[in-house]
């Protein structure tokens, strides 16, 4: 970018396509309302929430947080690379990001499996209802994000993007970071603070 004149402030546009940002804002609104509902429902069911929260798998939760953060980081590097016209490096970073996403999915499935085998369902109690809804809804976003990443990975690998034209990569990256951002709040909220 050029050095800007002191009097003229030059803003960058939002990275990626504007439509994805409208989508991101809408998604954040949905998650925001879910988080707020959780926090206030807990306030009125304190004992229940505090009791059952102990049985959540904090280790998997923490590992998954690190995985998503790392994945986001790889995707940042992928965007950096494509801006320098290095599409093969970019594809490699994207593949690493995708791999972390896949690992997240595996850990999450194991965690859900454990809960389900204990006979926990949406009807068990209001805490598990929220736990399953929040993590389950987020889980589906991880899957959607991975589909998008896989799509841009293939296109990057086929050298369809370059330094001048990489809107697609930035669009996918923005969505993926949103999935990360949501988990950053979800993990301490549901697994940690009491």
């Amino acid at each position: 970018m050029n050095h800007t004149d002191k009097n003229i402030v030059q803003y960058k546009p939002l990275p990626g396509d504007f439509a994805i940002w409208v989508f991101i804002f809408a998604e954040l609104l949905v998650f925001g309302i879910l988080f707020i509902s959780y926090a206030f429902t807990r306030k009125y069911n304190l004992e229940l929430f505090n009791h059952h929260q102990q049985f959540l798998d904090r280790e998997t939760g923490a590992i998954n947080t690190v995985l998503l953060i790392t994945s986001s980081y790889f995707v940042v590097r992928a965007v950096d690379a494509i801006k320098k016209n290095m599409s093969q490096q970019s594809a490699r970073w994207l593949a690493l990001g995708l791999l972390c996403g896949a690992a997240f999915v595996v850990f999450k499935i194991l965690e859900f499996n454990e809960k389900f085998s204990e006979g926990i369902t949406l009807s068990t109690n209001i805490f598990y209802m929220f736990y399953l809804c929040l993590t389950g809804f987020h889980f589906m976003h991880v899957l959607l994000g991975m589909v998008i990443l896989a799509f841009i990975l293939v296109k990057t690998h086929r050298r369809k993007y370059n330094a001048d034209d990489h809107d697609g990569v930035e669009t996918g990256a923005s969505y993926w970071h949103m999935v990360d951002l949501v988990w950053i709040i979800l993990f301490p909220l549901v697994y940690i603070i009491r």
Partner: peptide
């Protein structure tokens, strides 16, 4: 239907205007 629909229904349908 089970109770949890009051939560799921309220939250998700509140987003349907989006």
């Amino acid at each position: 239907t089970p109770d949890y629909w009051q939560w799921l229904g309220s939250i998700f349908s509140a987003m349907e205007p989006i």
